[in-house]
Simulated assay, not measured.
Amino acid sequence: MRKLILIVSTALLAGCATSDELGPAGDGPVIALVNGAGATVGGVQAEPRTRGSYIRVAVEGLPPGDHGLHLHAVGRCDGPAFQSAGGHWNPAGKQHGHLNPAGQHAGDLPNLTVSTNGRGAINFLATGGALNDADGTALVVHAKPDDYKTDPSGNSGDRIACAVISPAQ
């Protein structure tokens, strides 16, 4: 477990941004990303920025391929299916996906690519507003890629990993 946290922390810190908007990497705590059995499969950092939150995700041990990645409305990750996280974070009442003319949810994020060795990492700016509302937010990894248009979840399949971004972070 310590080895995985060290690997995840190193991967997260390696994705440092250089723009003034994003600022230096590594300021926030690493939040455990867990699978349906409760095992740690990666880590997440979420750091407030002027226009949203800069998020870093690193995973190890997930199936290879592209996976939908979304912010969900409730900061709970009760396994094995993570239904406790609710629907996508959608404070503006939009439809799903940046390719949907009526979209997009604030919680719609880019797909996470996992290589054949089970590792993947992604960094991005989530611009939908503050993630640290009263009940927190959940970052969920899905089994299949998001098609960026089909409401409500982009046909991204089951929820296979989850991390809670709590109000204190």
Rank of each mutant, 00 (worst) to 15 (best):
G157D: 08
N111D: 15
A58T: 03
R56F: 01
G43V: 09
N117W: 04
V114Y: 03
A39Q: 12
P91A: 02
H67N: 01
A168G: 14
V8E: 09
R119Y: 04
G97A: 03
C77S: 06
T113I: 01
R51F: 12
Q169F: 09
K144N: 12
A134Y: 02
G26D: 09
G86I: 02
Y54F: 13
T50V: 08
D135K: 11
H88Q: 10
V59Q: 02
A106T: 03
C162A: 10
S166T: 13
V140L: 08
Y148V: 03
G65P: 05
G93N: 09
V34F: 01
E47N: 11
R49A: 12
E21Q: 13
I122S: 08
G129N: 08
A25H: 11
A25C: 15
N123K: 12
P24G: 10
G97R: 00
L22I: 06
G157L: 04
C77F: 04
A73F: 02
N155Q: 13
L139Y: 04
T116A: 14
T137P: 05
D135L: 12
R2M: 11
R56L: 14
T113L: 07
V44N: 06
L112R: 02
L22H: 07
G103W: 04
G23E: 07
T137K: 05
Q45I: 11
W89G: 06
S84E: 02
V114Q: 02
G128M: 06
V57D: 01
V8M: 11
G97E: 01
G75D: 05
T18P: 00
L69E: 07
L62K: 06
M1K: 11
N100S: 11
A39L: 10
K94D: 10
K94C: 07
S156E: 06
A81R: 10
G42R: 00
K3C: 06
T116G: 14
A102K: 15
D158N: 11
L62Q: 04
H98P: 13
H70S: 13
A168N: 14
H142W: 08
L13F: 15
V141S: 00
A32E: 14
S153C: 11
L4S: 00
S53N: 10
P145Y: 05
I122K: 13
G154Q: 01
G38C: 09
G154K: 04
V141G: 00
G107M: 08
A121F: 07
R76I: 01
T10A: 15
I7G: 10
G52Q: 04
W89H: 09
Q95H: 12
V74W: 03
N123M: 11
A14L: 15
S53F: 13
D146F: 07
H72N: 10
H96L: 03
D78N: 09
S156K: 01
I5C: 07
R2E: 14
I165D: 07
R56D: 13
G128T: 06
A25E: 14
N155L: 12
P24S: 12
M1V: 12
I160G: 05
G129P: 04
C162L: 10
C162D: 13
A32M: 12
C16P: 07
T127R: 13
A168E: 14
T137N: 02
P48D: 03
K94S: 14
T40D: 00
G79H: 05
